[in-house]
Amino acid sequence: MDGQAVAPRTAGHHRALAWCSRPDAPSAAVLVLHGGQEHGLHRPGRINPPGLRMWPFVRAVERATAGAEVAVGVVRYRCRGWNGDRADAARDTTAALQDLAEELGPVPTVLIGHSMGGRAALRAACHPCVAGVVALAPWCPDGEPAEHLEGRRLLMVHGERDKVTDPAGTVDFAVRARAAGAHTAGYRVARSGHTLLHRAGLWHRTAAVLTTGLLGLHDLPAEVTAALALPAGDRGGLDLPL
Rank of each mutant, 00 (worst) to 15 (best):
A120P: 10
F173D: 08
A16V: 03
A7M: 13
G118P: 14
A120R: 01
H198E: 13
H198Q: 13
L149R: 01
A135D: 08
S192G: 01
H194M: 06
L122C: 02
W55N: 15
R119F: 02
A174K: 05
R153M: 08
D172Q: 12
P23W: 07
A95W: 03
L230F: 01
G181L: 00
D142A: 07
P23H: 14
A89R: 00
R59D: 14
G105T: 07
A135C: 02
A120V: 05
D92V: 02
G143V: 00
P8K: 12
A182L: 01
A135E: 08
G236E: 12
A146L: 09
L136K: 13
L196R: 07
V110W: 11
W55G: 08
L230Q: 15
C79T: 15
L111N: 14
H42A: 11
A5N: 14
R119N: 02
G132H: 01
A190R: 15
G159R: 00
D2L: 09
L97N: 04
L230G: 10
E62C: 12
G3K: 14
G3Y: 09
H148I: 04
H13C: 10
P138I: 00
H14K: 08
L215Q: 03
G105W: 04
L242P: 13
I112R: 04
A5H: 13
Q37A: 14
T109K: 08
P241A: 05
S27H: 15
L238Y: 04
H42R: 13
R191N: 13
A68M: 02
L41M: 10
G181A: 03
A71H: 04
P49W: 07
R199P: 07
A185V: 05
A208M: 11
A87P: 13
N48H: 15
A180L: 06
P141I: 01
T184G: 13
M116K: 12
T109G: 09
H218E: 14
A222H: 13
P138F: 03
A64F: 02
L196V: 11
G3A: 11
V110R: 14
A120W: 01
G236V: 05
G51C: 00
P8T: 08
V30N: 04
W82K: 00
A7S: 14
R9C: 10
